[in-house]
Design a protein around this nucleic acid. Sequence first.
RNA 1: GGAGGCGUAGUGUAGUGGUUUAACACACCGGUCUGUCACACCGGAGAUCGCGGGUUCGAUCCCCGUCGCCUCCGCCA
Length: 584
Amino acid sequence: MKIHRDTACGELTAADAGREVALGGWVESARDHGGLLFVDLRDRTGVVQVVFDPGKDQELFRTAEGWRSESAVGVRGTVRRRLPGNENPRLRTGEVEVVPSEIETYSVARPLPFDVAHADAVDEALRLRYRYLDLRRSRMLENLRLRHRLFHAIRQFYTAEGFVEVETPFLTKSTPEGSREYLVPNRQEPGTFFALAQSPQIYKQLLMIGGLERYFQIARCFRDEDMRADRQPEFTQLDVEMSFVEEEDVVASTERMLVETVRDAAGIELPHPFPRITHAAAMLKYGSDKPDLRLPLEIVDLSAAFGKTGFEAFARTLAAGGVVRGLRVPGGGALSRRELDGLAEEARRRGAQGMAWLVAEAPGSFRSPIAKFLSEAELEALARETGVEAGDLILLLADQPAVAAAVLGWARLWAGERFHLADGAPWHPCWITDWPMFEWDEEEGRWYATQHPFTMPREEDLPLLEREPARVRAMKYDLVLNGYEIGGGSIRIASSEVQNRVLKAMGVEGVERFGFFIEALQYGTPPHGGIALGLDRIVMLLAGASSIRDIIAFPKAARAADLMTGAPAAVTPAQMRELHLRVT
RNA sequence: GGAGGCGUAGUGUAGUGGUUUAACACACCGGUCUGUCACACCGGAGAUCGCGGGUUCGAUCCCCGUCGCCUCCGCCA
């Protein structure tokens, strides 16, 4: 390397005029006038213009003319103010330019598979295949910087609070419940497998038993489930656990951490204290356990108003233990018939028996296919309960509570999107508390846990564990931000006796797999609890990105494929033999 | 596992109510150009219209299947 850079491109200003500098970077663009060549040189700090004049140095000019976009090059030269009138106010370094005296071509770039400078519109699959080029965009670089700033702030926060970051194993033991795991064949003993950790849950509890008292970890987790825009097969979690604490301690500490680190990393002020909403209230009012509170829409229960309805469809549902609920969409009367019918169709696709719509044309006057089935008193109650005004839309639905919540919850989000209700709205974190310990699974005909089996039931509900599981509440709290679940935690079971009862009540199979853990609980377990936060989702929200892929350096595409390396891929027969594996 | 959307030069798009030379912009190659910064201008090359099958005299277009990507449902204790 002849030219060893000593200055950053993006930081040159008029104050540097006259300085001799050595720069290194990539050719962002070149404008060749034949008798004059402008090259924009970019490094991680920004862009500066380099001017080549064949009248001054024919050889330099010739060489630079051959530079292709995105080639890696070095330039030694003198900074000078641009001639008056030739400044570029849109460039941070636009007052100056560099007159080269020596240049070096580190590496010429082949013609590119896509235009790096304007890659926003490029097919994402192509961006993923050439991720290293995609990362050169300032947008991507800034996302990774933001991610780093947040992680750094988190480590600073917990370090200052006396927490210790401890690494826990990736290669661990398969657990009977929970998400599908990635398995790693064990060469040493045919037929045995490790599982990649789906979370450090058991290990962090063992650390509490081990006396760490305050633990955190920025941990990678692995789950072999289908993907979403906010889900990757491997993702990063902030894992925290504390001893001798109650629910309030974890919630307060986490809230303080998030407010401070988000302020430090992104300059965003989260309104706090975060509101707390019970799980039951969230399901009723927002139809979701991760409500987007930016949307000023609330679902209203109208079961009482329709208690004596003559409308057969509603009456039948109510008699069968169902509910009638409505959602008022201000200004929703502007929707076309086609959109309204589309809504009802999607509602059915999502499991509802149907969804009715009513448009308020004037106070007390509704346009709707079902208006004729409803009595004056019912329409009056409907208007009163929803607070409907002329021009509004009411979506009305009678179904089992879970279906009503899910479908109106979806409709609420749809309306938010359709009418841009969240655009520019302030950040809206909240806690979801008082989760039920169990929910009934209709299909499998059994109770299943709404959280992992180590969550402590409320003391006063313990006697109900075997008799009335539906009424047992969990000491669990979820953290929600703008409609995304960004974290969840709980107070853990610190007694082997209770742990056994809960595992049994959950019908966990293969309880003996947890034997080592049950035993560990018997040697002096402090009361403890903690939380885990999805850092990828948090960074995504802070970055204003719409997918978690945009804030992960090397994310996977659908079907968990790495489009760049081609993983997953077949391995050699020799590798298979060594691992005692055969593909069937 | 299921539903929907997309797939046309390197990139982004257009197009064809079925038959001709598949169009435009950027990028690329060659040329002109001393103040550009989306440089400009002239010229050129570049596409088995994702893949396979079917219907047809003829398919990029219609039908079926398949693959890939994206979004959603299920799933994610």
